[in-house]
């Protein structure tokens, strides 16, 4: 089958002629920069920088987000059903550990080195303790381009990494303040019943229990070119949203800029190492690394706003959207891939 694809898609093959590990990092970076999703993201930023009035209609942006998450869940569930559950125990365990450690390291660095107050530190740490689903999808797409196989059940890990980090960071913040405005219980409910969890976890369950063969009926819609096309459009709008935040970089300061990059690299490398230790393939470890390096900008912001109203939302959103997200999409993912190959 792959031989047939190679003859059908000579241009694509020309772009990726080498087996894995042979390409130098600069070449991998170049290929990643010239991928449709990175270019679409760059176009979105450009549109914002030149003050174009363009942006995706809000409902379409929301709709594409729903489609991407649900597709991700379904595919992950179908793949999960093919594996004996014992296989995922270790990867799930290290993912949980990552979910618990990342908010703590983020909080400590922000508080001790960055000199942020407890509210802002906890607020930003909640974002960096959670995960960005789009970064996850971008990592999968990148590895597909590199012809690097990955475990099909990875979306399960994405679902697991989403919420513990938010709660741990919010708990730290809440412990340090007297006038909490919202109970942790209602925040827990909010995060666990949010869009991401319903679509992703719900999709995983639906995909897992689908009768054999029925996935093929919908695969054309949820997988392949349609999925990647939708991802491009979504990234275009993400570029606009990130570009919107660029102006806030001045307010957030140099420390946060460095934090958004260095913390991503540290968490990314730790994630790759943890993935390999848990027995993931280099591709799977790269994806876990990208997840670990990423910061939430959908689930975390409302939870933080409700629980820690004194935390400045501009700081956390700028760090996760305008610094860490673009860094991971452009440089981070190829870097974690390279690290995974080095460690193997």
């Amino acid at each position: 089958m792959s031989g047939q694809e190679a003859t059908l898609l000579p241009a694509a093959d020309l772009l990726r002629p080498c087996p894995r590990g042979v390409l130098p990092l600069t070449e991998i970076l170049r290929l990643n920069l010239l991928s449709p999703i990175t270019l679409a993201f760059a176009l979105g930023i450009f549109a914002r920088v030149v003050k174009s009035e363009f942006s995706l209609p809000r409902q379409m942006y929301t709709g594409l987000g729903i489609y991407l998450l649900f597709a991700l869940g379904l595919k992950g569930g179908v793949e999960l059903a093919k594996e004996p559950l014992g296989v995922i125990i270790l990867p799930v365990a290290v993912t949980l550990v990552l979910g618990c450690i990342r908010p703590l390291t983020s909080y400590a660095v922000l508080r001790k080195l960055g000199g942020f107050n407890t509210d802002d530190s906890a607020g930003i740490a909640a974002h960096y303790g959670s995960v960005s689903a789009v970064t996850f999808i971008a990592a999968l797409t990148f590895l597909e381009g590199m012809r690097e196989p990955v475990e099909g059940y990875l979306p399960t890990l994405l679902a697991i990494l989403e919420s513990p980090g938010i709660h741990i960071a919010l708990a730290i913040g809440a412990l340090k303040q007297a006038d909490r405005t919202e109970s942790m219980g209602s925040v827990l409910h909010e995060v666990l019943t949010g869009r991401t969890m319903i679509l992703l976890v719900g999709g995983l369950v639906v995909g897992y229990f689908m009768a054999p063969g029925t996935w093929d009926q919908v695969a054309g819609f949820y997988d392949g070119a349609v999925f990647k096309g939708a991802l491009c459009l979504f990234l275009l709008e993400m570029g606009v949203v990130a570009g919107e935040r660029l102006g806030d970089l001045k307010e957030s300061g140099l420390f946060l800029l460095a934090f958004g990059v260095i913390m991503a690299v540290i968490h990314g490398v730790v994630g790759v190492g943890a993935g390999l230790l848990a027995g993931l393939s280099p591709g799977g470890a790269t994806v876990l690394g990208a997840m670990s390096a990423s910061a939430s900008y959908i689930a975390a912001p409302p939870a933080v706003r409700m629980t820690l109203p004194a935390a400045n939302p501009t700081l956390s959103l700028t760090a996760s959207l305008a610094i860490t997200f673009p860094f991971n999409i452009i440089f981070g993912i190829p870097l974690y891939y390279q690290v995974a190959l080095w460690m193997t």
């Binding site: 809000r58 919107e244 900008y297 706003r305 959103l317």
Partner: peptide, 10 residues
């Protein structure tokens, strides 16, 4: 000017 969603200004 605080915007908490992923879409500004709402």
């Amino acid at each position: 000017g605080i915007r908490t969603g992923d879409i500004p200004g709402q």
